[in-house]
Computed example of a mutant assay.
Amino acid sequence: MNPMLNPSGGSEWRTVSLYRQLQSAAEVRIWHFRGAPSEAFSGFDLTRIDTLRLAFPRGGTLVFVGVYFNISHWIRLARPARVILTYNTPDAERLTARVDLIRRTCGLEPEIVFCSKELASQVPFRGTVEPSLVDLDAFTPADRSGRTTFRVGRLSRDAPEKHHPEDMRLYERLAEQGCEVDVLGATSEMQANAPGPGLIHMRPLGSCAAPAFLHDLDCFFYRTSPQWAEPWGRVIIEAMASGLPVVTDRTSGASSVIEHGRNGLLFDTTEEAFDLIMKLARDPALRRSLGQAGRVTAEDLLSADVRARLEAFYLDPAAPSRSQP
């Protein structure tokens, strides 16, 4: 279950990736609500929850990918064997409310999946930490030799909190040094205020497929606003899988898999970010070594063993028994 509204939303693609992983081993369906889903998911057989027509999941295992959306009264009639809550946005109050709701309506103790160890440590619930699955066949390294320009790119939702207030000035400084900057998922304000035709490109969300966009980059940069603590950052793993050197700040959850100088670069300040990107611009060998190590990290993080353990968790036939009132 997920609203499936945002074409580059981490929760939406986490939903799709989990569906792909499980569909060959079980009967799996993606349920959505809140109107029509994004056209980005038109290739999937999505089913709309419609309580007026009594169309909603019944029995089995219910997986809510996110706790940021409301669960309607249909949950009282669903009578699931298991309920799994994916906690991937920092909102402890909403998580507590969803846990209480499942206990009251389903008579079950919901199981919780955390997107990172950092997020798990912030709430008084126990659960399992599970990476968001990335398609390693879609996100692959590209041949970046022979390029005449150095292109820095960034990909995310176009929400203002996904962008740091100092980033536009950083992009301008990089362009002044001859770097090309390409931002996919720029806010409307960023698009409106972008410099004229030149080295800085502010693209609207959905104007390019993520794998193709990453293939055209030489470096991936990522950080968010101080008002948004990035609990994971799926796009960072997609960039690493694409063989790109990643430059990210230490606050994102996905930075926990980066060893500075080996499979990526970490920074604390804008000045550090500028210096690290310029270092990559001048050193193709460093770009290659970081990108190659990043790909290996993505493969290890999403290995066959990891995927097998994930399947075992969701498909375990020994569903928990109902709790006592």
Rank of each mutant, 00 (worst) to 15 (best):
S42D: 14
M168F: 15
P110S: 11
I84R: 00
A78K: 02
R295G: 01
S242R: 01
S256G: 02
S323A: 09
P226N: 08
V83S: 03
H215N: 12
K117M: 03
L62R: 01
P131W: 02
G35V: 14
I277T: 03
A312E: 10
I30S: 00
G146D: 09
G264Y: 06
F69E: 15
T105C: 08
S255W: 08
A285E: 15
A36G: 03
D182E: 14
Q177M: 13
N2M: 08
L85G: 07
E299Y: 06
L22M: 09
V296Y: 05
I102M: 11
G59P: 03
V28K: 00
V63D: 00
S11L: 10
A308W: 01
V99S: 06
E189G: 03
F213P: 04
H215F: 14
D283N: 14
F69A: 06
T149S: 14
L310I: 07
R14K: 00
W13N: 07
E189Q: 12
R58F: 03
E111A: 15
I258D: 05
G294I: 03
L136R: 01
A40W: 05
W31S: 12
F274Y: 13
S8Q: 06
A175G: 12
P226A: 08
Q122C: 12
G107P: 14
A209F: 15
R48Y: 06
G243V: 01
N263P: 10
E109W: 04
A26P: 05
V296P: 04
A241V: 06
Q324Y: 05
Y87T: 00
P90W: 07
P245T: 07
P204S: 03
I258F: 04
R104C: 00
A159I: 10
D249A: 10
L276M: 11
K162D: 09
S145G: 06
A312V: 02
L214D: 00
E109Q: 14
V257G: 12
G9A: 02
G233S: 11
N6C: 09
A159N: 02
F41V: 13
A298G: 06
P7H: 00
T140M: 15
A81I: 05
R147C: 05
G59R: 04
L280M: 06
N88Y: 08
R173T: 09
T61C: 08
E12S: 05
